[in-house]
C-alpha cells in the first residue's frame, strides 16, 4: 500500500508542507517494502485548480492513504471521491516522523 505526504523539501527528513495542492513535493512510502521516494509536485505553481490536479497525481501513483494538514474544498471533494483515506496531521514534524507516527498508530489499532 502506498502512503503519501506533502513535503516542503526533496528528502524524507524535510518538514511536512502545510499545503496540499501547492506543496512542492510529495513523499511516497510503500508499507510492504518499507521503501520511500519523493517526487516534485508537477502542479505546485499552477494558477488554479491545483487541489484536484494533485489528487489526480496521487491516484496515478496508486496512493491509498494521504497524511495532510489541511485541504481546500475542491481537493477535499476529489479525495473523498477517489477513495483515498485522509489522515489529518499537524505539519510541524518531518515527513519521516509523520509516516512513522501513522504506521505505529495503524499497527496498534489493527
Amino acid at each position: 500500500m502506498i502512503v503519501s505526504i506533502p513535503s516542503s523539501g526533496p528528502t524524507v527528513d524535510s518538514q511536512m508542507d502545510d499545503r496540499f495542492g501547492r506543496a512542492p513535493y510529495f513523499a511516497f512510502f510503500d508499507t510492504e517494502t518499507g521503501s520511500s521516494r519523493i517526487e516534485a509536485n508537477p502542479h505546485a505553481g499552477g494558477s488554479g485548480g491545483v487541489g484536484p490536479m494533485a489528487v489526480q497525481f496521487l491516484v496515478k501513483n496508486d496512493v491509498k492513504v494521504l497524511i495532510a494538514p489541511r485541504l481546500g474544498g475542491n481537493a477535499d471533494g476529489a479525495l473523498k471521491a477517489s477513495g483515498i483515506t485522509i489522515i489529518m496531521q499537524n505539519p510541524d514534524v518531518t515527513v519521516e516522523a509523520a509516516y512513522s507516527a501513522w504506521k505505529k498508530n495503524s499497527e496498534n489499532s489493527s
Binding site: G46, G49, N74, A78
Partner: peptide
C-alpha cells in the same frame, strides 16, 4: 484514461480510477 484531466490547465477535471470529477467553478 486521464487525458482530459491531464490536459485541463485549470484543474477542472480530475480523473479517478472509476470516475471523473468535474469542478464547474474552475
Amino acid at each position: 484514461c486521464g487525458a482530459c484531466g491531464e490536459f485541463c490547465r485549470f484543474g477542472a477535471l480530475t480523473v479517478l480510477k472509476d470516475k471523473v470529477l468535474f469542478f464547474p467553478q474552475l
